[in-house]
Amino acid sequence: MTKLGPSAEIDWSNDVFREMKAREISLVATVPDGGLTRLLNMCEDDHATRVVTLTTEPEGVGVCIGAWLGGKKSLLAMQSSGVGNCINALGMPATMRAPCLMLVAMRGQWGEFNPWQVPMGGATRPALEAIGVRCFDVDAPNRIGETFAAAADLAFHGGFATAVLIGQRAIGAKGFGRDD
């Protein structure tokens, strides 16, 4: 099992946050994931960034579209399991040609301990692509920032739904105490 340690998470979270600020992405809608903890904490601590905690991920698609209609850039951050909840909702940005930028922490792939995560982990990218979302996989922590920037620019300049899928290899698999 790959264990990258906390410094890798600090680095890529800083990178993503910097790219968010550079693009004035000022709203983050989320059902949290452990792999996004540091980034979400940075957003919570930043007075210029509003964190909208959701009950279920498709709400975030609506929130992001509504924010865009009002001239504000936003991000939907979630775990791969949440992607499955979003599929019909993602028809809305496709129909409206509205940007919808998603940051997805993958589960159910590299070194997964919990078999319940595996089906949706495997279905995440095909399901997103089936509803028209442009997907960007990234496994190397030092490339997450630039990948996020590319996905954000495609979303906001082109009016596309885009998703950055941060591989479990980059985040580190959760061990539930087995190997921590």
């Binding site: 509003r50 498709p58 609506g62 579209i65 865009w68 209609l69 001239g71 028809g91 809305m92």
Partner: peptide
């Protein structure tokens, strides 16, 4: 007026995102 023809369940989240933006 923002008319919607789909996305059942999303009218209120959309209105929320809009309200926060303006």
């Amino acid at each position: 007026n923002l008319y919607t023809w789909g996305g059942m369940g999303l009218a209120l989240p959309t209105a929320l995102g809009l309200a926060l933006a303006v």
